[in-house]
Nucleic acid binder design. Structure first.
Lengths: 239, 239
DNA sequence: CGTGCCCTTAAGAAAGCCTTAAGATGAGTC
DNA sequence: GACTCATCTTAAGGCTTTCTTAAGGGCACG
């Protein structure tokens, strides 16, 4: 697929030679590139022009790659690739744990970076294997899965990680009834299959935040004895 | 139905003892098994013979289980079960996040692996290749199995879990007579095989809700001495 | 008549769901 | 390392719905 819209990649590294190397290679591969040489500048860039993917070095003065990953994850689920120096082996796990999507060890092959970037973008953009929607629009309730943002009546809603996960499960099967055990298994893990109490607490929390009248649910409907369902008035899951 | 096609499971672990242990148990349970001892080999195997499910170890040299999961998810939505060492507690959540379906902590009970595998396959296979209809449309009576909704004359009908289960059994064999013992066994469990009283009570409840004239049943017909049958006028079972 | 099967009814027991709140946990900050 | 804050976990009470159980009535068939 051609770049109908250019794909913007933000590259962050304190080493200007690497910055240039990556830029050249990515641009030759058809990407548009923004660069930043430290964490603070990266966040500013991120706000100014939200990129479609981020490549960042782990070891940087000031905000390091891990912290930066975490910060970005607070506001976006954009694909992130970490560049780790060799020997930082143990840290790669940490990187993935806190939300990075992939990593490369330096020195790295620029072509491999391009390949991984493409693979990531394919997954997140087209939803390659699954056909998961990127957003959901149900009357007062809007969910942007890419940015991890939820809006209720035009106002942004602040959800905790667990709340978001739960809502996401509901939203990705909008209209269908999801058995309690499935929700518990997907959000908390298979061994929580029978812990319905967790659901009650978190369903309530969600209702408080995204229901016009929390004690008279319009969106999050319980199907007693079975599970929950996210009601969508008429419409559709966006592009 | 017989194993028209054997279910193929790809098992990936760098420990050959575990590989053998799992292979033996899965084969005894009727699965066909492919194995690989590292990530790269696994991907090659995957391409050569796409399996119906994947079991993989998290900690492996080279491509670890997480990365492998992600790679596989880029091209397929097969069920994936992760094997995590004890103490990798925090990572299990990540495993589910990136697309695994279940996990077991080592040391694990081979029987449990088989059980979880079956559960996963039941869910995914039934959905895709599914033989079961998604809806039933019989004159005044409409059933949407996905949304778990029943309509009678355009009005939504509220059913209790047990009522729904019973109606579902009838509807999925619409037109055919189902023996009492079968219904009891499917809805309440095998040990209720002889408790016809339950049926009478719940059949009546259903008739009250979905029959034009409950005392003159048109849909739920009893076949004295055998069982019950859901009558469909000319009838279609939807897509 | 008497027996077996099915229908109807209703009341106590049980389960499911909602709500609340307090303690534990963990990440971020200084 | 101690402090702070948000989040998660856990437990308990109340309310509503659903399930279970038992008993009585009709109807057909011998």
């Amino acid at each position: 697929m051609q770049p109908k819209t250019n794909t913007l990649v933000l590259v962050v590294d304190d080493d200007s030679r690497i910055l240039r190397l990556v830029r050249v290679n990515l641009e030759r591969a058809g990407f548009e590139v923004d660069t930043a040489s430290n964490g603070v500048a990266a966040l500013e860039q991120f706000d100014a022009r939200p990129p479609d993917a981020v490549v960042l070095d782990v070891t940087m003065p000031g905000l390091d790659g891990f912290t930066l990953t975490r910060r970005i994850r607070e506001i976006s689920s954009v694909p992130i690739i970490l560049l780790t120096a060799i020997g930082e082996q143990s840290q790669k796990v940490k990187g993935l744990d806190i939300g990075a999507d992939d990593y490369l060890t330096k020195p790295f092959d620029p072509d491999e970076l391009v390949a991984r970037l493409r693979a990531l973008l394919r997954r997140t953009q087209a939803g390659s294997s699954g056909e998961e929607a990127h957003s959901l629009d149900a009357g007062d309730l809007k969910i942007d899965f890419v940015r991890r943002k939820v809006e209720f009546r035009g106002e942004p809603v602040k959800l905790t990680p667990t709340e978001y996960k739960l809502l996401q499960q509901l939203a990705q099967n909008a209209g269908k009834v999801i058995p309690n055990a499935d929700l518990l298994s997907k959000v908390w893990g298979p061994e929580y299959r029978d812990e319905s109490g967790y659901l009650w607490v978190y369903i309530r929390a969600l209702r408080q935040k995204i229901e016009p009248d929390p004690s008279n649910p319009q969106y999050i409907i319980s199907e007693p004895g079975f599970g929950y369902r996210l009601q969508v008035p008429k419409s559709e899951t966006g592009s």
